[in-house]
Amino acid sequence: MDQYLGQVVMAIGFILAILGLYGLLSQKNMIKMILGFSIFTTGVNIIMVAIGYVKGGTAPILDAEGNAVAKFVDPVPQALVLTSIVIGLGVTAMMLAYVMKLYQDKKSLNINDYKDLKW
């Protein structure tokens, strides 16, 4: 199991990313589309963390004396994912605000009712 940990995590990431993309494209309800987007973002984040995995590595935290006790995984993708999570949160909150405003206007969450910018 330990040997294939990276592959397993990456496979989960792929499944989540593809499911999220499918949800984003196939759903008509805008809240569900945002949920799909969130799942897609989560999948991509998991893929990024998996890329930095080193076999047998642990979290990049040193012990109290500041010595490395074990082999570490790459800290750079983890820092990137931290940034990406926060930005994903901001984008999700903003999309939800748009949806709330749209709903107040037309009392509908169906994306097909909004054709203002469709050509």
């Binding site: 990049p60 935290i61 040193l62 109290a64 570490f72 800290p75 750079v76 983890q78 820092a79 940034t83």
Partner: peptide, 9 residues
């Protein structure tokens, strides 16, 4: 810092 992720961020 002993938390390397925090030192990168």
């Amino acid at each position: 810092a002993t938390n390397l992720v925090a030192s990168v961020v």
